[in-house]
Nucleic acid binder design. Sequence first.
DNA 1: CGGGCTTTTGAGCCAAATCAAAAATAGTGG
DNA 2: CCACTATTTTTGATTTGGCTCAAAAGCCCG
Lengths: 238, 238
Amino acid sequence: MANPVVLKLQRGARLSVEDERAIAEACSEMVRLGPREVLIREGENPIHVHVVVEGFACRYKELSDGGRQILAWLVPGDFCDLHVAILGRMDHTVATISTSTIARLDRAAIERVTSISPSLSRALWWASLVDEAILREWLLNMGRRPADQQIASLFCELVWRLRTVGLVCDDEVLMPLTHVELADTLGLSPVHVNRVLQQLREAGLIELQNKKLKVIDLSQLMAFAEFDPGYLHLSAID
Amino acid sequence: MANPVVLKLQRGARLSVEDERAIAEACSEMVRLGPREVLIREGENPIHVHVVVEGFACRYKELSDGGRQILAWLVPGDFCDLHVAILGRMDHTVATISTSTIARLDRAAIERVTSISPSLSRALWWASLVDEAILREWLLNMGRRPADQQIASLFCELVWRLRTVGLVCDDEVLMPLTHVELADTLGLSPVHVNRVLQQLREAGLIELQNKKLKVIDLSQLMAFAEFDPGYLHLSAID
DNA sequence: CGGGCTTTTGAGCCAAATCAAAAATAGTGG
DNA sequence: CCACTATTTTTGATTTGGCTCAAAAGCCCG
C-alpha cells in the first residue's frame, strides 16, 4: 500500500518523484505502539518528528479536575509534532488511541529536505495550516452546534480525511474510539454521546459497531451535519 | 510608538535591524476601517496580506441558522491571512470589531523578504503556530471549563497578548467587544455572559466598563481561571 | 469462566438557553 | 446641547440540552 504521508502531502502540493522518495526514505524508522501510549508529553521538546503511519493517535490537554480535552485526531499521514522545533516546547500531549505504527523522522533530515525542495516545504506548511483549519471547524462545532450535528460533522470529517489516504471502502471506516474518548473530543459526557449515537443509528444515518463506522448515505449525513469539506482544503493532486 | 508587528514577531525569533526595517517598510500602506467592516470574506483569496496595526478584529464563521462563532481575536501585530496563499481560499471571514487601522502588505514582498531572511520567516512561522496553539486552548476552554473560568481565561490571554505589544497599563486593557460578541466567542448566550461578568465583578476579580477591562489582581484571576500562559510561547526577545 | 472494560438504561438535576421586556448608554442630526 | 433612536446591558421567568450518579448488561480476552 502507498505511503499515507505521501498520499496526504500530495493534496498540499504537487510533489516530484524525488520528493516522494525523500519522504518514504525519511519514514524508514518505525515504531509499533500499543493503545493509549504517550508519544510526546506536554513540556517536552522531542528530538524526532513523529508521523502516524497506521492506527489512530490524538493530541490532548488535561485539567486539574481530571477532565481531558482531545484537540486533534491524528490519522495515517498526519504529523504529530512538526511545530515543536519552532515553538520549543509541546503545549499538549500526544498519545495513541489504538495500536499504531509511528514513523520517527530525524528533525535535521526534515530541515535538510525542505530547504532543498520548495514543493515539499510547501506541502508541510500546507499540512500545518489544514490542522489549524480543522481546529477552527471543531471550535465552531463545539460552540454553536447541538451534539447530534457535532458528532455527525466529526464523522463526515473522518471519512473525508481517511479517503485521501485510501482508508475508506464503501463509506466504511475504522473508528477505534470509545464513547469516553468521543466525549473528550466533543466536550460532551460519555452518556450523552451514547444516546446521540443511538439517535443517529435510529435515523438511519450511520451504523457503528466493533469499532467500524459505516455511513449509510454520506450526502445525507453531510446535509444533516451541514458539513462542507472546504475547510479541509483537499485540492491539489489530479 | 513602536510597530506592534515588530514587537510581536520579536517574541518568535531574534530579529535583525534589517528585519525590523523590512517589516516597518512593508507596513507602509495603511487603511482605516470602521467597526464591523469585513476585511476578507470566506471563499476569497485576497491579493494582499493584512495585519492589524491598531484596534481589534476577529475571524468567524456563520451558520445557516444565523449563529456565529468567533474563531480568533486579532489584536495589534496579528496577521489576518498569512495562510491563504498556501491554502488558496479563505475558510472563514475576517472583520473588524472596533475602528481599526489595518496594514496591507504586498504578498510578493512578504515572500521576497522571507526568502532572504531566515529569522523573519521563522518569526512568521512561529506566529502562525501560536495562532494554532491559541485555538487549542480555546477548544479546551469551551469543551471542558465552566463559563466563569472560560471568560476569566480569555481575559488573562488578552492581557498577556496585549502586553507583548505594549498595550497594557496597570493591568488595564481595551476590551471593545459587546456581550453578544463575547458570547459568539465563547459559545455562550449573551444573557449568560452578562450574568457571569457580574459574578466576576462581584468576586472582585475584574472591573469592566466603557470598553475598558481592569484586572484587579492578575495572579488571582489566573489562579481562578487555571490559566497557564505557556501556550502563548512568549519566550524570545530578552 | 471470571474480571475488567465498554455500552446501555434510568432517574434526577443543573448550567446555560430562550423569551420577553425594562433600564441604561451611546450616537445622530437638528 | 438636547431630543430622538438605536444599540447594549440588565433583570426576571421559564425551559432545556446535556450532566451526574448509579447500576445493569454486554464484550473481550486471557
